[in-house]
Simulated assay, not measured.
Amino acid sequence: MKEVLLNKKAIDVILLEVTDVTVLTDYFVLATGMNKKQVEQLFAHYCEEALEEEGIFKLRKEASEDWVLIDYGDVIVHLFLEETRSRYGLEKIWHKGKVIES
């Protein structure tokens, strides 16, 4: 997942383990894009495509103007515009989670 995002020029890609912090999921993948098109079309599309090739299919997907969330059950992918990621500060909210990759 991280490599797919980095190949599409995502910045600040983090895998955060939250298994011991919440029952919602085991991991969050957080990544930032420079513009709406990059976040919505490139990141989201290629993440979904790469995981589908591995036999992993999304449970649901939600998108707004500046944030795409793709729920795979055990993993939730958050793709943001820079300002939105900073405003919501998921890393701070889930600070008790363990950064696996950064």
Rank of each mutant, 00 (worst) to 15 (best):
54 E>Y: 04
32 T>I: 11
37 K>Y: 08
47 C>G: 03
62 E>H: 07
20 D>G: 04
49 E>I: 06
37 K>M: 11
21 V>Q: 13
51 L>Y: 02
36 K>Y: 10
102 S>F: 09
73 G>F: 00
23 V>P: 13
88 Y>F: 15
34 M>D: 13
81 L>I: 07
100 I>G: 03
92 K>H: 11
2 K>T: 14
75 V>A: 05
5 L>K: 09
76 I>V: 15
58 K>W: 02
31 A>G: 13
85 R>W: 07
68 V>P: 11
15 L>F: 14
12 D>P: 03
90 L>T: 08
57 F>E: 07
78 H>A: 13
82 E>W: 08
74 D>H: 11
1 M>R: 03
87 R>F: 15
29 V>G: 04
70 I>G: 01
74 D>W: 05
73 G>A: 02
92 K>E: 15
25 T>L: 01
2 K>N: 13
28 F>I: 11
33 G>V: 06
50 A>W: 09
99 V>I: 12
67 W>T: 07
4 V>Y: 09
90 L>A: 12
98 K>C: 06
93 I>Y: 07
25 T>P: 00
30 L>F: 10
61 K>Q: 06
50 A>L: 10
6 L>N: 08
90 L>G: 11
97 G>C: 01
36 K>P: 12
45 H>D: 14
70 I>E: 02
92 K>R: 14
23 V>T: 15
75 V>C: 01
100 I>T: 01
78 H>G: 12
22 T>E: 06
74 D>M: 12
37 K>S: 15
5 L>A: 09
11 I>S: 15
14 I>K: 02
40 E>C: 07
11 I>V: 15
43 F>L: 08
57 F>W: 04
31 A>H: 05
9 K>T: 07
73 G>P: 03
25 T>Q: 00
102 S>Q: 12
30 L>Y: 03
85 R>K: 08
67 W>N: 10
83 E>C: 02
89 G>D: 15
44 A>Q: 05
51 L>S: 04
62 E>F: 00
76 I>H: 06
62 E>Y: 01
20 D>A: 03
26 D>S: 01
35 N>S: 01
88 Y>C: 09
68 V>Q: 09
101 E>P: 01
6 L>Y: 07
38 Q>G: 10
49 E>Y: 05
51 L>F: 04
84 T>C: 13
99 V>W: 05
55 G>Y: 00
80 F>N: 03
19 T>W: 00
6 L>A: 05
12 D>T: 01
57 F>Q: 03
98 K>F: 06
21 V>I: 14
74 D>I: 09
38 Q>A: 10
5 L>V: 13
41 Q>H: 14
99 V>D: 00
21 V>H: 05
23 V>K: 15
49 E>A: 12
10 A>F: 06
76 I>Y: 04
30 L>S: 03
4 V>G: 10
44 A>M: 05
12 D>K: 08
71 D>F: 00
72 Y>T: 00
69 L>V: 13
19 T>L: 00
80 F>D: 02
40 E>M: 07
50 A>S: 14
21 V>A: 12
21 V>S: 10
93 I>H: 08
52 E>N: 14
33 G>Q: 06
2 K>F: 13
67 W>H: 09
54 E>T: 06
95 H>Y: 11
101 E>Y: 14
65 E>F: 10
28 F>W: 13
41 Q>N: 15
47 C>K: 02
76 I>W: 11
60 R>L: 06
12 D>M: 02
33 G>A: 04
7 N>R: 07
36 K>Q: 15
17 E>N: 11
74 D>K: 09
